[in-house]
Design a protein around this nucleic acid. Structure first.
Lengths: 188, 188
DNA sequence: ATTTTTGCATTGCAGTTGTATTGGGAAGCG
DNA sequence: CGCTTCCCAATACAACTGCAATGCAAAAAT
């Protein structure tokens, strides 16, 4: 075998560039050549690692989704062992909300892909499992009966807050206040 | 003056076609020619009523937003005079949620435009006022202190439910259960 | 040393994009 | 009738799209 190249790393490099383009100009600006330029590579190389644009999109969706899980993991890990459930939930959700500019960029990309997935069911499959397992996890942290419903409503609230944060309808302070109020209720 | 044509009606006809295309294939499939075909007119005619694509997009955004307001208005009007606030809220929100296929189509379009607006601030301006006035209205229906916060959280919850409905994570039954639970809490 | 496999840049191609331009037909007004 | 004003269709065009094909250099395998 000739020239050893970390295939996965290259794909990730390209996917990162794709996300940068999508975060700044939207998914419609994502083309082979734009992504290649953003990644600082030739268009031919992008083609070398993704035989089709759809393949590149699918990979990028997977990266976005796994990046979200990593965010949660890191936030949880930073809390140490056996943190109080409420603090843990607040930390997790705050980690997923687009509160600062880097996470806003990720949020815009995730939103764009979400909209993309609503008209491309085969792409939606990659997004569903991650939220479904999130619901279960959140439910395990909530007290008393109705934990499943509480988890659903808490996550739906989170998504809505994320939307309004991205749209500029809410400030981070407002969003966190709403979140805390909901947590007050769930743990009352 | 020659041939009298209802300018506004033509533009609305075209915008409807645009929304049909966007609902079925996403915003990326929205081109002058696609929209023209969907509307059953020539591409030149579309160009005649919208000098640029951005202008067409802006008009369509306005139509989407005003269609949402109309939905709310109709739902409220159907309740007659002085309905109980809780029923009114539930009716309004249910009217805005993508619960059946027609409203799902609208939801997909609205979502696509929302994502579009996050990377085009000048388009976002058209979306913000409608939600802001919705917050005020909802707040006026909620009891006791903290009505403003309650309204914010209720609307954020609504948006999140809408997302999950479109994404297929929630069924309509689940979404409405979550909504009712939240209303229980707000009116307790 | 030769062969073979892989990494990647370049180029070409057919199709689509938004927009500008041209031209003519229809309908109101004088 | 003439004529002006508007409606709209058709065409042209440069830029861009995704993708296929080609070619070549580097490096492992033999």
């Amino acid at each position: 075998m000739p020239k050893i190249v970390d295939h996965e790393a290259r794909r990730r490099l390209i996917a990162d560039a794709l996300m940068r383009v999508a975060a700044e100009q939207g998914l419609e600006a994502v083309s082979l050549r734009h992504v290649a330029t953003a990644a600082g590579v030739s268009a031919g190389m992008v083609q070398h690692y993704f035989r089709t644009k759809d393949e590149m999109m699918a990979f990028a969706i997977a990266v976005v989704s796994e990046r979200g899980e990593a965010r949660v993991g890191a936030a949880v890990a930073a809390l140490g062992d056996n943190p109080p459930p409420r603090l843990m939930l607040r930390t997790m959700i705050a980690a997923l909300l687009p509160l600062d500019e880097p996470s806003r960029a990720d949020g815009r990309v995730a939103l764009a892909f979400f909209a993309y997935a609503t008209v491309r069911p085969e792409a939606a499959a990659a997004l569903r499992p991650s939220t479904s397992q999130l619901v279960d996890f959140v439910a395990s942290l909530l007290p008393g009966p109705g934990a499943a419903d509480g988890a659903a409503s808490l996550l739906a609230l989170m998504e809505g807050l994320g939307l309004y944060l991205l749209g500029g309808q809410f400030t981070p302070v407002q969003a966190l206040a709403v979140l805390d109020a909901q947590l007050d209720h769930l743990f009352s």
